[in-house]
Amino acid sequence: MDRDHALNEMPNGLIFKVSTQTRKIIFFTGIFLCATPFVSPAIALLLGLIIAQFTGHPFIELNHKATNWLLQFSVVGLGFGMNVHSALLAGREGVVFTVFSIISTLLMGYLMGRWLKIEKKTSHLISSGTAICGGSAIAAIAPVIQADEKQISVALGCVFILNSIALFVFPMIGHHFNLSQTQFGLWCAIAIHDTSSVVGAAAKYGTHALEVATTVKLARALWIIPVAFLSTFLFKNKSKKIKVPYFILLFIVAMVANTYVAEVAVLSPYITMVAKAGLTLTLFLIGAGLSRNVILAVGFRPLLQGVVLWLLISSAALYAVLHFAS
Rank of each mutant, 00 (worst) to 15 (best):
S180M: 12
T214I: 07
Q183T: 12
A213K: 00
M172R: 14
A189P: 15
I192Q: 01
A203Q: 13
G200W: 13
Q183W: 02
V199N: 03
V198A: 05
A189W: 01
H208W: 03
D194Q: 02
T214S: 14
F177R: 12
I192H: 00
G206S: 08
G185F: 00
T182C: 04
W187L: 11
D194V: 07
E211K: 09
L186P: 04
G200R: 13
E211C: 08
A191I: 02
A219V: 00
H208V: 03
L186K: 02
D194N: 12
T215S: 14
T215D: 14
I173F: 01
V198C: 08
Q183I: 05
A209T: 00
Q181S: 13
L179K: 12
T215W: 07
A189N: 08
L186V: 12
A209N: 06
H175Y: 04
T182K: 07
G206D: 13
S197M: 02
Y205V: 03
G174E: 11
V198H: 05
G206P: 12
K204Y: 05
T207Q: 06
Y205H: 12
A219K: 00
F184E: 00
A213V: 01
A201L: 03
I192M: 00
P171S: 05
A202T: 02
L179W: 03
I190D: 01
V199K: 08
A203N: 15
L218A: 09
T182Y: 05
M172L: 15
A203M: 10
H175F: 08
M172V: 15
T182E: 01
A203F: 09
W187T: 01
F184P: 06
T195A: 08
Q181L: 07
G185R: 10
C188F: 03
T195D: 08
A203G: 11
A203E: 14
T215C: 14
S180V: 09
L179G: 14
A202P: 06
E211P: 05
